[in-house]
Amino acid sequence: MASMFATQDASNIANENPVNLWIRLKFEERLDKTMKYYTSKMVIVQIIVACGFSISELSCGINYSNQCPMEPAINTFLVAHGATKFAWIFLTILAIADARLIYKKMNRKSLARRLMLINLVFQSLFAVWFFSWFIAGNIWVFRNKNRYQSNDPTNTSTYCYGDLYQAASLLISMEYVGFIITFIGTVKRRFISRRLKHAMNNKVKHEIMA
């Protein structure tokens, strides 16, 4: 049975349009690299950091509810942003399970690629939603920076509980720092990977020529 499917697959590849075959193989190569990424330690670190941010945002947003009459949307931002992050964490855990179990351990690569593609579509949608809330949070928090005060609760046009406002400002600032660190780490990793690949290719060429 297995040999029959293998023969069928080989026949399909042989009959496939060369351009379509090249596109499919490149697409599968990208998904395979994604699988490798989701088996790395960096993803685990990102989940742990994201959990810390998410718990902090939800805690501040819920515990300090209705304590920022100056800008009530700050509480909404913290709760929605923290909940969205938890949704991303859930999707990331599913991606890790797909890469480690279905792709690597069970060796069902075709199924794993399809599941990963679906996961990436949902992650992209959540990324757009997450980014939208992050921009909105920046506006709601920092546009009130110069007029916010935490001493007179009776002046509702400028009052916001100090711990809430400072926590929201700090969390947004730390998000920027985390993004910069992740971006630098990703660029560095890809640069080193390309350099190593280039060095290995040169080594192989020299050995063949020798």
Rank of each mutant, 00 (worst) to 15 (best):
M1S: 14
A2E: 12
A2N: 15
A2M: 11
M4V: 13
F5T: 09
Q8P: 01
A10L: 13
N12Q: 12
N12W: 13
I13Y: 14
I13C: 03
A14G: 11
N15C: 10
E16D: 13
V19A: 08
N20F: 11
W22V: 06
W22A: 12
I23G: 02
L25A: 07
K26G: 10
R30H: 09
R30C: 10
R30L: 12
D32E: 11
Y37A: 10
Y38V: 02
Y38K: 02
Y38D: 00
S40R: 04
M42V: 12
M42R: 05
V43K: 00
Q46M: 13
Q46D: 11
Q46W: 08
I48P: 01
I48R: 07
I48S: 07
A50P: 01
C51V: 09
I55F: 11
S59E: 01
G61K: 01
G61T: 02
Y64W: 02
Y64C: 01
S65D: 09
S65I: 13
S65W: 14
C68S: 13
M70D: 02
P72G: 00
P72L: 04
V79S: 07
V79M: 15
A80E: 02
G82F: 04
G82L: 03
A83W: 03
A83C: 08
F86G: 05
A87T: 04
W88P: 09
I89W: 04
L94Q: 09
A95K: 00
A97E: 07
A97G: 10
D98T: 14
D98S: 04
A99L: 04
I102Q: 09
K104H: 08
N107H: 14
N107M: 08
R108V: 00
K109S: 05
L111H: 06
L111P: 07
L111D: 09
A112Y: 02
R113D: 00
R114W: 06
R114Y: 08
R114K: 15
R114S: 14
L115V: 06
L115E: 01
L117S: 11
L117M: 11
L117E: 07
N119W: 03
V121A: 12
S124I: 05
L125Q: 10
L125S: 01
F126R: 01
A127K: 06
A127L: 15
F131Y: 10
W133G: 04
I135H: 06
W140P: 05
F142S: 03
R143I: 10
N146R: 14
Q149G: 08
S150P: 09
N151F: 10
N151V: 03
D152W: 08
D152Q: 02
D152N: 07
S157V: 01
S157K: 08
T158Q: 11
T158A: 10
Y159V: 00
C160V: 03
C160R: 00
Y161S: 00
Y161F: 11
G162I: 03
G162N: 13
D163K: 12
Y165Q: 01
Q166N: 12
S169P: 00
L171G: 01
I172Q: 13
I172D: 12
S173M: 07
M174P: 05
M174A: 12
Y176I: 13
Y176M: 13
G178W: 14
I180G: 05
I181R: 04
T182Y: 05
F183C: 09
I184F: 12
I184A: 09
G185K: 08
T186C: 03
R190A: 11
F191G: 14
F191E: 04
I192V: 15
S193V: 04
S193M: 05
H198T: 10
N201S: 15
V204L: 11
H206E: 15
E207L: 15
